[in-house]
């Protein structure tokens, strides 16, 4: 109990510092970037899709936080939005979120930003959301509807989106963690059915929603409609196809696309090489690498 209190106090102080620094940075850089992206600014890289801890069905090369941090830093990542892999199956999400916060602070100061997990079907989730916002000063939360057993037309989900928007939390919605064809036979989960999202966005206009691992299944008209319904963003971890980023940017505004790696479940290099494979303007590159994520988190 006392350890928990101590760590929360430490974390609050640490994250207050980080959050303030990040927002100042964003405020000072934003006008420069929208006017003319400079080489130096586009060097920084914000990965909105990393995870800490262990995947239940496999050990991964970077599933120890210090190793992941080292990997990300060497790859030039300047900020990474981290959820916990424990969140998919653990029921004590309070402990998961606390460990996530401590790990980010202990090993990834200035780099890792924790995104806690909430299951709106479970008791007392509003209190967990409060802790994520007020005690851990998280920039947002990461939701796993397929592992947490609800559909997006569930009223509890709509309420969670509203409360998160009221607290100015970014909501990350995970569409998939892995290819459904190679899930463990006892860990098979249904795909997220995104149809209700567009009207939920219209009902919650202040919400900022980031879809993780969505581009495997969400494409074409359905994707464009959803992006047009509000402040909705996608990232490129599960984007496929030769020249995939170029093809995506021909369909959707570059202001809505973020850099995401899905490390350590995926090789980090995949997302990075996608930026190299597609010919991008300096402005597009800067938007994807960091400017969009910076603008998004500055509003948090």
């Amino acid at each position: 109990m006392s350890a928990r209190i101590v760590s929360r106090t430490v974390n609050r102080r640490a994250f207050l510092g980080t959050a303030v620094a990040a927002s100042l940075l964003a405020a000072s850089r934003e006008p420069v970037l929208t006017a003319a992206p400079e080489a130096g600014a586009s060097e920084s890289l914000i990965d909105v899709n990393v995870s800490l801890s262990r995947w239940p069905a496999r050990r991964l090369p970077h599933d120890e936080t210090p190793e992941l941090v080292d990997k990300l830093r060497r790859a030039g990542v300047t900020q990474a939005w981290a959820g916990s892999l424990e969140a998919v199956l653990h029921k004590d999400l309070a402990a998961v979120n606390q460990r996530l916060t401590e790990e980010c602070h202990r090993h990834g100061r200035g780099l890792l930003r924790p995104f806690g997990s909430i299951n709106p079907r479970w008791p007392d989730w509003e209190e967990e959301l409060r802790r994520c916002a007020e005690e851990y000063l998280m920039p947002g939360v990461r939701l796993h509807p397929s592992y947490h057993g609800y559909r997006l037309d569930d009223p509890a989900f709509a309420r969670l989106l509203r409360l998160a928007a009221d607290r100015r939390l970014i909501v990350q919605l995970v569409f998939a963690m892995e290819d459904e064809r190679m899930m463990h036979p006892l860990l098979r989960v249904p795909a997220v059915e995104p149809a209700p999202l567009a009207s939920l966005m219209k009902a919650t206009p202040s919400l900022r929603l980031v879809l993780l691992n969505a581009l495997r299944t969400l494409r074409g008209e359905a994707l464009r409609t959803l992006l047009a319904a509000g402040e909705v963003f996608v990232e490129i971890a599960m984007l496929e196809g030769v020249g995939g980023v170029e093809a995506l940017l021909a369909q959707v505004p570059s202001s809505r696309v973020l850099f995401g790696s899905h490390a350590p479940l995926f090789y980090f290099e995949s997302a990075l090489l996608k930026l190299q494979e597609s010919p991008l303007s300096a402005e597009q590159r800067g938007a994807l690498r960091q400017a969009n994520a910076r603008r998004l988190s500055a509003a948090a």
Binding site: E240, V242, G243, G244, Y267, E269, S270, L272, K274, E277
Partner: peptide, 15 residues
Amino acid sequence: AGGRSFASQLAKVLG
């Protein structure tokens, strides 16, 4: 490729 990107697949080796 073309169903997959060169990037995601090269990453398996380079990474």
